[in-house]
């Protein structure tokens, strides 16, 4: 591909304990300018760790290897000061839980203006108009009074809007959203998704959207990465993944979604559950839960197989 804005190469994250636990194992992907890349998987697959390593927010015990290239710099080798300049201004993040991501002791204005001040903005008068503009951007009703309210006075949807507003305030190049709608109702979810799409288009952002819900992917994504147990299992364009999946895990995820059409028959869920990071199996990481497992699956990690130009899968069954 031509001109990626972010390239992740051989990203491996380990946690140092009595024995080293590998959380992420050789992750490779790139993010093109203006596209939305979705990372999909169950909890405990390493989706959030991928996001945290890009932001340089990994816990102290974790050690990241490999390369994350952004504008010619390797993010993994930057110092804290250098990272602080990038965070918020060039890469920003929206977290899952809008209830805990805002500080309950400070007003919305104080928290919004902090971003501008932290990045060297001094004119106090303009600060307020800038903050108001953010609230208008994310369509908060009655922005003038809401600006001086405290987080508990706002609903969950409104808080998530403010967080998205904060994330795009300095017009970053990349926005990383970690399950931003999981805690919200369907109606609010729709509004947040359309807000996200609108802002992305308007400001020409690239986005990394992390979710476990494949039905959300159909609303926001351009390309999809399916992750499982710290590795990538399948990657391809959205339509191709949703309509024509190859990996048994992707198929299982799609089959698990209940719907009106599937009434009257049992769902076909993926048996078992995600293994913890300490006891991940040998060979293909998915084999203990795979219904089509063969002898080779338990021994050898499958190679990358291209099924079309930009759709590939790691599975022994796909030839």
């Amino acid at each position: 591909m031509e001109n990626p804005i972010l390239t992740v190469q051989d990203l491996t994250v380990q946690i140092k304990n009595q024995q080293d636990i590998t959380i992420l194992n050789n992750i490779n992907f790139d993010l093109q300018k203006g596209e939305t890349l979705c990372i999909v998987g169950e909890s405990g697959c390493g989706k959030s760790f991928t996001a945290l390593s890009i932001m340089g927010l990994l816990p102290k015990k974790a050690k990241a290897y490999g390369k994350i290239m952004f504008k010619g710099k390797n993010l993994l080798q930057l110092s804290n000061e250098e990272l602080r300049d990038i965070r918020g201004k060039e890469i920003s993040m929206v977290f899952q839980d809008p209830l805990t991501s805002l500080n309950p002791l400070f007003s919305i204005y104080e928290q919004l203006s902090e971003i501008f001040i932290a990045h060297g903005f001094k004119n106090k008068k303009e600060l307020k108009t800038r903050c108001l503009k953010i609230l208008e951007d994310v369509k908060i009703p009655d922005p003038k009074t809401k600006l001086f309210s405290y987080p508990h006075e706002l609903s969950g949807g409104q808080r998530q809007r403010i967080l998205i507003g904060m994330a795009v305030a300095l017009e970053p190049d990349i926005i990383i959203a970690d399950e931003p709608t999981t805690a919200l109702d369907v109606t609010i979810q729709y509004e947040i998704l359309s807000l996200f799409n609108r802002l992305k288009r308007k400001k020409g952002l690239s986005a990394l959207y992390i979710t476990h819900d494949l039905s959300v992917v159909s609303e926001v994504g351009d390309r999809v990465i399916i992750m499982y147990a710290g590795t990538i299992l399948e990657q391809g364009p959205k339509e191709s993944i949703l309509n024509n999946p190859y990996h048994p895990y992707t198929k299982g995820l799609l089959n698990s979604i209940p719907s009106l059409e599937k009434r009257g028959s049992y769902l076909t869920p993926i048996p078992g559950f995600v293994p913890s990071a300490e006891n991940r199996p040998k060979g293909c990481p998915f084999h203990p839960r795979c219904l089509k497992k063969q002898a080779i699956c338990t021994k050898k990690v499958p190679d990358k197989t291209f099924v079309s130009d930009n759709h590939f899968v790691y599975c022994h069954l796909v030839k």
Partner: peptide, 15 residues
């Protein structure tokens, strides 16, 4: 719960 696990529980309830 995750979608795959959710489907397991739903199947159980139906059963």
């Amino acid at each position: 719960l995750d979608v795959s696990v959710q489907a397991q529980i739903i199947n159980l309830l139906m059963e």
